[in-house]
Amino acid sequence: MTGAGESGGTTVLGDAERRAANGEAAARPVTYAVRSEQDLLTVRHAVRAATRRAGFSIVDQTRVVTAASELARNAYVHGGGGALTIDYPTRRDAVGLRLTVTDDGPGIDDVPTALADGYTTGNGLGHGLGGARRLMDEFDIRTEVGGGTTVTATRWAVR
């Protein structure tokens, strides 16, 4: 909704050609602010709509929306707010949906622990990171103490 954060227009020429050949409209990345509890709901709706658009099965839709909810909540609670960007990478055999969640919070000093925690208990908020990773096919965290956190997570639906 709001244009916060940068949305890298990283469409490779080959991809564009392939999409044009398949008659697909190239979907542009959209960024949503995550600054209030209301925003968390908005993000969930947007991600749900995006998963439908990408043609995901109902179970895959649920996985991605749940992961988005965890990541957005993390950014809101621990990062003091941030933004979530949705885009649609393509692969030869699959369509994807990529979530990029950024915040300007304190960063994570021990990523392995942050990922391992909360596996069995929902003990405290913000332990959904490891869970979100299990729900997505690709997962990447870039973080720096004092420099904010960016999580990129992709789920693929094989055509």
């Binding site: 179970v59 649920t62 749940t66 596996y119 929902g122 729900l135």
Partner: peptide, 8 residues
Amino acid sequence: ITLAELGL
């Protein structure tokens, strides 16, 4: 399914 995969 999603909850089980989340580990909850």
